[in-house]
Amino acid sequence: MKTTYAAALSAVALIGLAGCVANNPKGAEAIAVESTAAECKVATATATSGNISFNVKNSGDQVTEFYVLADDGLRIIGEVENIAVGASRALTIQAQPGSYFTVCKPGMIGEGIGQTAFTVTGDEIAIDASEEKATQEAVANYTAYTKTQVGELVMGVKALTDAYVAGNDDEARRLFPIARINYERIEPTAEQFGDLDPKIDYRKPGADAEGLEFTGFHRIEADLWNDEAVLNYPDDEVPLLDQTGREALADQLNTDIQALYDQVHSADFVLTLGDITNGAIGLLDEVAAPDGKLPGEEDEFSHTDLYDFYANVEGAEVAFGSVRDIAEAKGAEGAALVAELDAQFKAMKDLLATYGNYDDGFVSYDTVAQDKRNELGAQLNALSEPLAQLTHTVLGVSEG
């Protein structure tokens, strides 16, 4: 998760992401949730195993998020983020019997408020044998993809930090957006691991809001594009680092990326079908967030946001592709959703390609006029609306 700040809110107001209106998917138990400035009101503390749809209304005064957490209070079972003031969104999960927690996060920062125990009763959910095999294959394939991306990330970050420490700033500037591609493709997975994402990818407002040291990608960015950083933070908040400072920052980023590699390659690393589908949705939320790529806040010094934008879309498409056959097998509704997503992913990538590519580079995002950003936002909406239905379709009951 990235943090937000008030100045960015107006920049994202025009987006109006589709999928923000809560619905009650067929076959899902619907539970009302109200997020306010001080409370996270969940209508009931119990539910029956199966598909559960949390219909979250934001009655507060800040953009908010809603989470379902595992019994340890740390691992994320499902989340819906970037819920605008006055808007509603639905989070659908497939829950087995057990103990969970619900929590809201107004402002999308800090530990959240109203963390409450939530119990799922009933029987274990049975899966059709043929679908179970398809599920196992999808999870295995996507897990392998995730591990591959993190392996490439280790190498890309090492190349970036080597150039940075050596003082080869032109090469480091070239490598900065390239090194981030692998991270952006799997960002929701990376965010599962406690304090790693804050150290690796928080922007300065996020680090300040949570009382953290400003490190990682964006501290290197602030050093490499220091003129831009000084314009944004004129009170000597992001001074140029000396050689010792550069070496310490580079070592820390490499250490944190290696820790991420170790986590996804450990025997304890397990993904579910819901992780994959909700991760796809989360990747597009990362683009549209008030401090995200579409408003131009992610890479505020380098203006390399389009690299991240494209990588998030790529990652979402890979996640969708992993479960595509399962969705298509869900009868006419599933087949129609797959066809729509195929078309909208192509349209989104075709539009982004008009601004460049990884090999030749993307245009600097500060040169993209607001009407063109609106066009990107409209296409993002067109993709996000059907993608918001992916979890329910994949985890739902076949029509056939």
Rank of each mutant, 00 (worst) to 15 (best):
F118T: 11
L91Y: 10
T121L: 09
T119N: 15
Y233R: 03
A335T: 09
A280D: 00
Y67E: 12
A163T: 04
K57P: 00
Y145V: 04
Q370H: 15
S384K: 08
A6G: 15
I125N: 14
E247C: 00
S130G: 12
L395F: 12
D162P: 01
E328P: 15
G216F: 03
G60D: 03
F309D: 04
S398T: 14
Q379M: 06
L160D: 02
V150R: 00
A207F: 14
G334V: 13
T367S: 14
P177M: 09
V318I: 04
A179S: 07
E29G: 02
V287Q: 06
A18R: 03
D256W: 05
T148M: 04
A159S: 13
R373Y: 13
V12D: 03
E247N: 01
G331M: 07
D251G: 11
A45H: 13
P386H: 06
M348P: 00
S364R: 08
V394F: 07
E297Y: 03
K41V: 10
A332R: 07
N58T: 08
L390I: 05
A335M: 08
I83A: 02
E210I: 05
V397G: 11
R180Q: 09
F214T: 06
A289S: 15
K26G: 12
D360W: 06
I31G: 07
D350A: 01
V139L: 15
T143V: 12
Q263M: 13
V157Q: 01
Q252P: 01
L271T: 14
E317N: 05
T255W: 06
I181A: 02
V394A: 07
L387C: 02
E213S: 15
V264L: 11
S302K: 02
L283K: 02
D223S: 04
G216Q: 01
A329G: 15
G331L: 09
G274D: 05
D285Q: 08
F269C: 07
L306G: 03
A316H: 02
T64M: 10
I31E: 11
S49G: 11
T304Q: 07
A70P: 09
Y202A: 09
T143C: 08
P25Q: 03
A329R: 11
Y310N: 09
Q62T: 11
A163D: 10
D170I: 03
G112E: 13
L240V: 08
L260E: 02
A45S: 15
Q344R: 02
V21P: 09
V150C: 06
Y358T: 12
G112F: 01
V139D: 06
L351V: 06
K372I: 14
